[in-house]
Simulated scan of single mutants.
Amino acid sequence: MALDQSALLKLLEALKAADVDDRVRAATETLYQALIEAELTAAIGAAPHERTEARTAQRNGSRPRTLTTTAGDLELRIPKLRAGSFFPSLLERRRRIDQALFAVVMEAYLHGVSTRKVDDLVKALGADTGISKSEVSRICADLDEEVAAFRDRSLAE
């Protein structure tokens, strides 16, 4: 049985009320990191410290990346390659918050909430660092583009 987003948010709130938010954040961080490592292993054809004929590149350390989620801020390590580049498909480039918080920011913007109150709202949802005014503006600019495309669509069909 799949849970919808509101059921997941209720479950997250229940877990936070039970004072297990650090365990939820740690589990979420571990899951994200494992998925990133699995994707890199598939992309280069070899696990860490494994030598195979199918290997197409070599790992070369990692760089830190913070992802803000409703479970809290996740400190992820994005692997680097000696030749070429890698960015996990699980994450989106230049986006530091997950889709649930992204939707909350857009909804707040549509209702005319100030950037300071949006920051407070994001912190209340579990993000340790909140969200900057420039990030809110960037998200809202993306939303403005989507609204403009919808408004300017052809009604001929």
Rank of each mutant, 00 (worst) to 15 (best):
L9C: 01
I131N: 05
G130S: 05
R93Q: 15
T70I: 13
V147D: 01
G84H: 10
A27Q: 03
T41M: 02
E50L: 00
R151K: 14
P88S: 05
R82W: 04
R77L: 11
F87E: 03
L125C: 10
I36Y: 04
A34Y: 01
L74F: 05
E146C: 06
A43I: 00
L35H: 07
A18S: 14
T70G: 09
Q33A: 06
V136N: 03
I131K: 03
V147P: 02
E13K: 13
D4R: 08
A141T: 12
R151T: 12
D119Y: 02
D120V: 09
K80Q: 15
E29A: 15
D142Y: 03
L35W: 05
E50H: 03
R116M: 08
R153E: 10
I97P: 00
A7F: 01
V104R: 09
T30A: 15
P88F: 04
R151V: 14
A42C: 00
L76R: 06
N60D: 14
Q99C: 00
L35E: 13
E37V: 03
G72D: 04
R77A: 14
D19W: 04
A26S: 14
F86A: 04
E50V: 00
D144K: 13
D119T: 09
A27G: 11
Q5I: 15
S154E: 11
G130C: 08
E50T: 01
A26M: 07
T41P: 01
A46D: 02
A47Q: 10
A124W: 06
R138A: 14
M1Q: 08
A38E: 15
R55D: 03
T56F: 01
S134L: 07
E92F: 02
L155Y: 12
D128E: 15
L9G: 00
L101G: 10
T68Y: 02
E13R: 13
I36A: 04
C140M: 04
G84E: 09
E145P: 00
E53P: 00
N60S: 13
L11R: 09
G45A: 06
K80E: 10
V24K: 05
D128I: 09
L35D: 03
V105D: 05
G130V: 07
T115A: 13
G112K: 08
G84Y: 09
K80C: 01
R138Q: 08
R94M: 06
R151L: 14
K16E: 11
A47V: 00
T52H: 01
R82D: 02
A2E: 13
R23T: 09
S154A: 11
A127E: 06
S134N: 11
I131D: 02
G84I: 11
T56C: 00
E135S: 14
D120G: 03
L3R: 13
R23A: 12
R51T: 11
T70D: 03
L101M: 10
P64R: 11
P88A: 06
A54N: 11
